[in-house]
Amino acid sequence: MDDVKDHRICIDGYYYWIVRISPDDARARGIGRHDLVKVYNDRGAVLCAADVTVAMAAGVAHSCESSASYDPVGEPGKSIDRGGCMNLLTPSRRQSTKTESSAAMSCLVQIEKWKETVGAA
């Protein structure tokens, strides 16, 4: 399953979750196709493989929130995730009390090229 191209991309022996960004945003950040990037906001940070695609409008990034994997590179809860757990970035607010459904369908993030080495799995 990890080898499905739109599912994960193998970089240096590790299968990273995919974030899709527009060519304009990629150019502005020096990001190339399948580069390792850090997607982050005040809530957390996730390492992903970048898919640069004209299907995305400038200023918009897309990633599926269903990786079902949390793999922190350091201390759990306090370090960057590389399992692709995108819901670290979205608000945990619910649609109403007594439901489990997420209230948000989007959130603000910043994306930058990841230059450090993390190593294989």
Partner: peptide
Amino acid sequence: TNCNNCFL
């Protein structure tokens, strides 16, 4: 549609 059923 790139569903990948054939691949899988």
